[in-house]
Amino acid sequence: MKKFTRLQRILLVANIVLLVFGCLMMGLRQNTLSNIGYSAWTYIKYGLIDYPVTSVTNMFSDFANLWHAYDDNQYLNEQLAQQRSYKTLYEEQRNRNQELEELIELNGTLDEATTISASVLARDTDAWDQTVTISAGSTQGVEENMIVCTSQGAVGLVESVQTATSTVRLLTSDTLINDIAISIALDDGTNVEGVLESYDPDAHAYRISLFDNDASVTQGQEVSTSGRGGNYPSGIYVGSILDVETNDSALISTIYVSPVSNIGSFNYVLVIGSGTIS
């Protein structure tokens, strides 16, 4: 009678072979003097199973690391973007600080004049060179026609006053609410006076008429308020002479004065009332 099928015989032989092989390996493992066979088997096992498995798992691990690298990259990009924001923020704060320091310096030069510190609340983009709204109003003592200065010099006149805010008409505006009396200190110790009438957008300068047509004014001379006829003190810097226009009789008819450098962008202002600058 046939006891085993062909398949079972094959399985039996394979089992016996593996069992004998395993026992042999076990025996070699116990024998510390001859571990060559065991080392060879370890090497085969490593080559056949462990190394491929480790390679596959390393592949997964590399893929996971790649994913982490992507995350890291995203994180670093965000950080970099934030750093850029911090840099611009820092620069803005530094400029504001500088502006405030200069305003304090200017404030220190005013003895009897009324000074009110304020910040710019709004500046309409459609009328950038026309008006600004500042954070000081009648409560703080602001009055109409007071002069408004930045750290560089005069930039406008108070047009209307509300309780906590005021509207400032800039000197670069098309329609100045009042002419501003100015004064130019000459080299011989005398002053020549005039009036700031308007702003010439083509020349990017104030148009000023002098009362004394014979005065010898030249480019680069500084122009300041004279304090006459306004609700503000004398000596506040308005700008420097850019050009001098003469008439047929070689008499000075009009001078052009460049505005202060930061009239295009400022954050803090000083509203100055009547008085004198020391």
């Binding site: 399985l11 039996l12 089992n15 593996l18 069992l19 092989f21 395993g22 390996m25 096992k45």
Partner: peptide
């Protein structure tokens, strides 16, 4: 026999 063979492979 089949399972024993697989078991021995597992062991080795």
């Amino acid at each position: 026999l089949f399972s024993a063979l697989c078991g021995l492979i597992q062991d080795l």
